[in-house]
Design a binder for these strands. Structure first.
Lengths: 198, 198
DNA sequence: ACCCCTTTTTGTTCTAAGTCAAAAGCTTTC
DNA sequence: GAAAGCTTTTGACTTAGAACAAAAAGGGGT
């Protein structure tokens, strides 16, 4: 077995097992459903108007989530860097048409599992259902609620500080315009926050 | 069996079965874990600093969710009226201390199940795990994501219209101050929106 | 019917952040 | 290494909604 492949396999396995420990036989069944892919910067994992058919486990890279509003302006709602689970939850769970886009902002390494495979695994393995519950609880609930209370209670400066805290190297990897859009402020305002004029 | 009790049982059963159909034997095991309670207006289901130990199924009544900020100001984050599932998701799933309060704003009829009972049922019944997945997906993900995109993309007037649309009778049941707090605007501004001056 | 207390409305002033515009810095690329 | 393109910064002006203040309107309880 080649060194590179081995390293990648371990990355995915680690993420899966850190969520909830699966019996070896179930783990193997689960791993077999994943496809390992590499996509270039700017590639779209998801575009609005299509149902989200995958859950993606990124082991390396960076993505942004964004909506395009009526005036055609793109508004970022989230960034995921390095080792992260990626999907459009509302579209995935209801298999409704996505409203948001998910786009790579760096060349990225991704492991994909299809929605239909997840459904099959849920029915087949009780332990996989327990794993999936942990995934949803930890990944969505924690992340979304956190973001919600930020939007509600913090001003732009505080939200920027928090983002810097979460991803200290974010300014080297994501443009000011993209970060401003995530903070829901203009890039002029973010520039002024950065230079300490606000 | 009394008429009133029968009616209530059916209400709870309906909610449970509408989420995901459980085998009769599992349903009975689940129903047996619920406690039926009636609480008066202003009662607190949850206060900050305590872990959320229950999932509540309200069959009648109204609650508000709110945070208290550093200046002691209460900020509403959600309302649930009539038939709704109620809990503090982040606190429940991680059994961490709650940051928010959940308070009744009308006399309410509630069916409560404990977190520990849910854990036991999840391990015991594969079908209950599948039921719980649907609950989390439908209840949390749909609701929270919806709220998140509202906060991000709609201004106060649009958010107010949407709330009126969801709960047309809300103005008769919830005070202007409480609604303004939910919309994250002052009550003066909401009063002006209502009278069409904004 | 009156008083007390809470909720809602109205008026004025103030401020954080947006908009528009232009300059300054960086980076590709030929 | 100059031109062309982005990205970021700076400046001037505008605006939505906050803050403060005070008046008006409801709504029970005695």
């Amino acid at each position: 077995m080649g060194k590179a492949v081995n390293k990648m396999k371990v990355g995915l396995e680690d993420i899966i097992q850190s969520i909830y420990l699966l019996p070896q036989e179930v783990l193997e069944d689960v791993l077999a459903q994943f496809q390992h892919l590499e996509y270039p910067k700017n590639y779209f994992l998801l575009k609005p108007g299509k149902p989200c058919k995958h859950l993606w486990f990124m082991t390396n890279g960076a993505v942004r989530y964004f909506y395009t509003n009526d005036q055609g302006k793109e508004m970022n709602t989230w960034f995921s860097l390095d080792t992260q689970i990626i999907t459009d939850a509302p579209s995935l769970v209801n298999q409704t048409l996505a409203q948001e886009s998910i786009q790579l902002i760096e060349d990225s390494e991704i492991h994909a599992i299809e929605y239909t495979s997840i459904q099959t695994l849920l029915q087949k393995h009780h332990s996989f259902a327990l794993w999936y519950i942990k995934l949803v609880e930890m990944h969505y609930i924690a992340q979304i609620e956190d973001r919600l209370s930020d939007l509600q209670f913090l001003d732009a400066t505080q939200r920027y500080q928090k983002l810097l805290n979460l991803y200290p190297d974010i300014t080297n990897r994501i443009s000011l315009g993209n970060i401003a859009s995530y903070l829901n402020i203009t890039q002029e305002t973010l520039s002024r926050i950065r230079s300490g004029k606000l």
